[in-house]
Nucleic acid binder design. Sequence first.
DNA 1: GGAATACATGTATATTGATTACATGATAGG
DNA 2: CCTATCATGTAATCAATATACATGTATTCC
Lengths: 163, 163
Amino acid sequence: MRLTRFTDYAMRVLLYLGTRPDRICTIPEMTRAYGISQNHLMKIVHQLGRAGYVTSVRGRNGGIRLARPAAMINVGAVIRHSETQPGAEGLALLDCQTCRIAPACALTGVVDEALAAFFAVLERHTLADLLHGRTGALLDIFAATASEDPLPAATCVPPGFAR
Amino acid sequence: MRLTRFTDYAMRVLLYLGTRPDRICTIPEMTRAYGISQNHLMKIVHQLGRAGYVTSVRGRNGGIRLARPAAMINVGAVIRHSETQPGAEGLALLDCQTCRIAPACALTGVVDEALAAFFAVLERHTLADLLHGRTGALLDIFAATASEDPLPAATCVPPGFAR
DNA sequence: GGAATACATGTATATTGATTACATGATAGG
DNA sequence: CCTATCATGTAATCAATATACATGTATTCC
Ligand code: SF4
Ligand code: SF4
């Protein structure tokens, strides 16, 4: 029972962008701030773009920004979207498809109910809530980490760059 | 975001035993009923024993039975126990240990709250609830599957396979 | 126009955790 | 003693996730 790192990184991106509603941010910049894989982050940002949470601008001086105000971004919706496999109908916590007692099993219903309660809580929160009163602290951390550690060379190398 | 099969199998064992409070059941018997790995089931039963949910009797004519009435077995407690890694403190849905913004991150709290809501629902149910009005149907399924295939290849195939 | 910067996208590899298999020991009945 | 059953530790398999790699496309600036 864990959330994927994909989901967590998606939230981190939103948090990062939320602390800087004024400007456009780049993926390499966030990569440095969090010290995580640039390629992975790129896919996550791409997904967030397709889901309509962020707007990306290509080309020089391009980057990423929130597509809507933080108060319009629902934490539950983001996490649900991010945890849903691209092909699955909903997200099932158990694999009841191959289970012989499925037609007589009451556990499925209970677990679904619990999952609904889980998301009900998440859906009570927006990105703005998460940022409220914390943007200063977050900006401090980003500033500190961005300068302190220039990121392992490997991840900084632009893809396709001869080595 | 999934529950482990370990957890599901644990619940299946309890459901099986719950439909037969009168007699003692064996692991091979349940293996046949569900068509799942006997060794895996054995570990799960062992864990359930250590957690105090079932009582095992060794030796010939041995087997497993519920250690308490089904009404005293809380679904939430079983699942929480089963999902908790042997060594972890609690169960964390995200790996905040290695995250730079942890000190300023509000997401942790929200997710923990949601997880609490998840278990709150589960903890409102007991094994007896799950069995209520379904023991007949379950026994029918067990009887049908147990006789229909006497354990050869079919039951030893991992569930969810496609070959 | 050309170089540089930044996102887009598809494929391959690596890592991790869960699952299953294997091997062996212990206990109890008959 | 022999067999059926649970107990327990280790190893191999497998699948999902995460990361790396390669290349393409768009935009801006000179
Ligand atoms: S929840 Fe019930 S039906 Fe679904 S896999 Fe578990 S036992 Fe089977
Ligand atoms: S929840 Fe917050 S602190 Fe925990 S890993 Fe995600 S971003 Fe970091």
